[in-house]
């Protein structure tokens, strides 16, 4: 997945640590081999290769993954859409917008999650158009963390911190010093300072942004974030972080909320407990944080308070 992975398990003995780390590494590699479109015989690559011409039989796991994407697409009113890759390619080396460009129109006509036909009985997937491609970039890391969580829970790990490239974080149990994990969101314009902190106890935080960071410290707008409503990349330098119990839900929602209206964000938030969302806009030269709060008071949260 072209990033780094850290796992910290406080107080574990050497032998158990080695064994757990081996199991986690194997699982993450397994998932990458399944979901990466760069690996020629991955499930995704095979689907992309064949599904425009024939119904492709998916194994149970892959079928559930595609179903989950479809579900998230549904609840975010199309904001989470793993079929936008052709638009990313289109905008990669283009800055001028020509709405009448036939190529752009043709790409827009041929993508969209609604063109992915999912047959629950035969567990097959078919694309309605030729130009369609599934890209699970906004899903894979969260999914991997979900699976890692099971492995750790199975091994009775009570407390652990896992970071997948900093943008997908899972914090199990409490911080060893007691209390929730205080997961700060790094301010890229003031590195080492937190713009916001999430208090996480057995949950996850996922960040989506239209830029990457590397060790040279520069932000690079990768133009990978496409607003499906207008079919164009999001140009404002911004990020969305979502805290949720499930890492895969956090991952999908952070991907979606980067291009969602506030209304959609609130609607989704009201369907789930313990969902926290922030947006950070770096465009003005400093990170401006917008916190989204669940509008209808959640009795659970009130009790906690």
């Amino acid at each position: 997945m072209n990033t780094r992975f850290h796992i910290i398990i406080p107080g574990i003995d050497d032998e158990s640590g080695d064994r757990l780390f081996g199991a986690v590494k194997q699982e993450v590699n397994r998932i990458e081999n399944k979901l990466s479109r760069f690996i020629p015989d991955s499930d995704v690559a095979m689907l992309n290769k064949k599904a425009a011409n024939e119904s492709v039989r998916a194994d149970d796991e892959f079928f559930e993954i595609i179903n989950a994407c479809r579900f998230c697409w549904d609840i975010t009113e199309g904001a989470f859409d793993p079929t936008l890759r052709p638009l990313m390619e289109y905008w990669k080396n283009r800055s001028e917008v020509d709405e009448a460009d036939e190529k752009l129109i043709s790409i827009k006509d041929n993508i969209g999650m609604e063109k992915v036909q999912i047959d629950s009985e035969s567990k097959t997937i078919k694309f309605d158009s030729d130009g369609l491609e599934i890209d699970l970039g906004g899903f894979g890391k969260g999914y991997a963390l979900e699976k890692v969580k099971y492995i750790l829970e199975d091994a009775s790990v009570k407390s652990a911190f896992i970071s997948f490239g900093e943008s997908s974080i899972l914090a199990l149990g409490e911080h060893p010093a007691g209390g929730s994990w205080k997961i700060g969101m790094n301010d890229y314009l003031n590195p080492g300072q937190s713009l916001h902190r999430f208090y996480v106890n057995g949950g996850s935080v996922s960040t989506s942004s239209n830029f990457f960071v590397s060790d040279n410290g520069r932000l690079k707008n990768h133009r990978h974030v496409i607003d499906p409503k207008i079919g164009q990349p999001v140009e404002r330098c911004c990020s969305v972080s979502v805290s949720a119990e499930s890492p895969v839900l956090a991952e999908m929602l952070s991907t979606a909320f980067l291009v969602s209206s506030d209304e959609v964000i609130y609607e989704v938030m009201n369907q789930y407990d313990h969902l926290e969302v922030i947006k950070v806009d770096y465009e003005s030269g400093q990170g401006i944080v917008t916190e989204f709060e669940q509008k209808e008071a959640d009795p659970m949260v009130q009790e906690d308070n």
């Binding site: 072209n2 890391k141 970071s163 205080k182 997961i183 301010d187 942004s209 960071v213 590397s214």
Partner: peptide, 14 residues
């Protein structure tokens, strides 16, 4: 238990 700025955009290798 401190607030550590540990989350954010995806790190990618050079």
């Amino acid at each position: 238990n401190e607030d550590i700025p540990i989350g954010g955009a995806t790190w990618i290798p050079d």
